[in-house]
Design a protein around this nucleic acid. Structure first.
Length: 544
RNA sequence: GGCCCGUUGGUCAAGAGGUUAAGACGACGCCCUUUCACGGCGUAAUCAUGGGUUCAAUUCCCGUACGGGUCACCA
């Protein structure tokens, strides 16, 4: 076979050489140990947790004065969705992830582009052509049906599946045969001619997992699809080489095709990047774990957390506890420090899949929000409401001082309340303050009879004086409690429940339900002052 | 089915050849308390399993089981 002639036949328009691209994309001038990494999503319109998970690379790049960039893997035109690139950028921006170079909404920035793979067709074809010239790649005319047939036969024979050895029908076509098929207009893909041995294991250093042993690739996998666009495997190798990527951080599902990637780097004589395969986030499904699924699990989508209103930093705090086992300890020691001050390390990443724990996220978010100022919470809630709850946004703007006061209750001090971890939770929690949204959700405490309910609320109203100090106010509550045969001290009631109708818990909770509609709320006297005397009296009278 | 990866409490996990096997979340119980919270304390693990190496293994090696992933002209 005349490889030069075949290459010319297959790629008549390619005039550049690999050397041209080496010159175009010179090695980066960066300090020793600088990490160059990226996220490389495909523009399917679905931005998921994994994308953010791998954006941890940004922190690694920052820590080492390296580079973090965005590459768009748009080689599958069928799955592409309009506006998807903007969606990725918007989502990353929301989570504070900044790119040094790569695709942008307007176009792109950086010297190693284009950063959209489809625009790099000529580069891939140049590399492909050189492989053909070296006799390492060949056109394949097999149809989908033929390939399915081959797979079925291999399955039936319990042989390894794939295009290799005697199954590689197009491997040894003559130049004339290729010429004939091409002039007949038959579509073709370009396959790699693998000389790998399935029995051979090759060691690969993984940045997270340590030394890995993978089987050598023996299949003639596809480099270029029939439309001339590369497959993921080929594009990844070419791009990460010419973009001078040092670390490839990606999901562990790529472990299976690692042999292909390693083989490509080696045969092209390029230095392999450090592969870092992250563990997949899992979810409990009945008795067993399984990968988070796009169709079944709304929490896989990044948009879920935004719509729910979890502050971006809180999501990072949670993700970091899962990503780096020593992060949580650091965060407890530095509760108010920004998570970016934490030194992230690949070695501390877990290699087995963690169950995604929404309860823990919730806890972390509550703790985070409890430490924020009332202004921050007001602004955050308002910004969220403008997008997801416009009625609330309107009320907040109309009654800004009132909402700020409500948000301030229980905030500050050594023991701030942890009532909500997301803006959606905050909206719900705060709803009782505003008379427009006030609804009684909880019932009067069980220990309190209808008669006592009336007596307590009437008595409460009679002595109610808005000028009282909190101490004076509560002294009156205690007095009322005692008069009506309830125990002022919970402990006494617990010891001798038969001596009392109930305790101050019941009395307080009755007032609480009257005032807030719930049995769980912040301090009643503070709430009353946010509501004002008229509204306070109105709610209690109404509940008598 | 082949191949790859994994397995410490309900969940996330630290850990080292010899430890009382950290810590966090969740659950439950108790305490504090001027209600609701917050907070404090406490309870719950024969470190998947069989074998080997060793004075000693949960920690090293091999097998088994289980779980997960992957085997496309999708990424």
């Amino acid at each position: 076979m005349d490889n030069q002639a075949l290459a010319a036949l297959l790629f008549p328009d390619i005039t550049k050489s690999i050397a041209d691209y080496e010159a175009l994309y010179p090695p980066r001038d960066l300090p020793d140990g600088a990490v160059v990494t990226r996220i490389a999503p495909s523009p399917t319109g679905f931005v998921h947790l994994g994308n953010l998970y791998n954006a941890i690379g940004e922190r690694l790049a920052r820590q080492t004065n390296g580079v973090f960039y965005l590459r768009i893997e748009d080689t599958d035109q069928k799955r592409e969705v309009e506006g998807a690139v903007e969606a990725v950028i918007d989502a990353m921006n929301f989570y504070g992830v900044k790119f040094d170079e790569g695709a942008t909404v307007e176009g792109e920035t950086g010297k190693y582009g284009p950063y959209r793979q489809r625009q790099r067709k000529e580069l891939y074809q140049t590399i492909a052509k050189s492989l053909v010239e070296r006799g390492l790649a060949y056109p394949c005319f097999c149809t989908e049906e033929q390939l399915t047939e081959m797979r079925d036969e291999q399955m039936a024979n319990k042989e390894n599946i794939g295009y290799y050895g005697k199954y590689a029908a197009c491997r040894d076509l003559t130049l004339e045969q290729v010429q004939e098929k091409i002039s007949a207009g038959l579509p073709w893909v370009l396959r790699f001619r693998s000389s790998g041995d399935a029995e051979k294991m090759i060691p690969v250093q993984d940045g997270i997992r340590g030394e890995l042993h993978v089987q050598e690739n023996y299949t003639d996998f596809v480099l270029l699809k029939s439309d001339g666009i590369p497959t993921y495997h080929f594009a990844h190798v070419c791009d990460d080489h010419f973009m001078r990527t040092t670390h490839v951080i990606r999901d562990e599902s790529w472990l299976a095709t690692l042999p292909i990637h390693v083989q490509m780097f080696d045969t092209l004589g390029w230095q392999r990047p450090v592969y870092c395969h992250t563990a997949t986030l899992m979810k409990m499904d009945g008795e067993s774990k399984r990968k988070l699924s796009k169709r079944k699990d709304p929490e896989l989508a990044l948009s879920y957390y935004r719509a729910e209103g979890f502050p971006p930093e809180a999501v990072w705090l949670y993700l970091l506890t899962v990503l780096n086992s020593n992060f949580e300890e650091w965060h407890m020691a530095n509760p108010d420090a920004n998570s970016r001050e934490f030194t992230f390390s690949l070695e501390k990443m877990s290699s087995s899949g963690a169950l995604f724990d929404l309860a823990k996220l919730d806890n972390i978010a509550k703790d985070y929000l409890s430490r924020q100022s009332a202004d921050m919470v007001y602004d955050g809630l308002l910004a969220w409401a403008k997008e997801y709850d416009t009625a609330l946004a309107a009320r907040m703007e109309a009654k800004a001082d009132f909402f700020r006061a409500a948000i301030s209750v229980g905030r500050g001090g050594d023991k701030p309340r942890k009532d909500y971890g997301s803006w959606a939770q905050a909206a719900k929690f705060l709803s009782f303050y505003d008379s427009e949204t006030f609804v009684r959700e909880d019932e009067c405490p069980e220990n309190v009879s209808a008669e006592d309910r009336k007596a307590i609320l009437t008595g409460y109203l009679e002595t109610l004086n808005f000028a009282d100090t909190p101490e004076e106010w509560f002294a009156k509550v205690k007095e009322l409690t005692e008069q009506l045969g309830y125990a002022v001290q919970v402990k006494k009631y617990k010891k001798n429940p038969e001596l009392y109708k109930g305790s101050i818990v019941d009395v307080s909770n009755l007032i609480r339900v009257a005032l807030t509609g719930r049995q769980n709320s912040p301090d009643l006297w503070e709430i009353s002052h946010v509501l004002g005397e008229a509204e306070t009296r109105r709610r209690i009278e109404e509940y008598q």
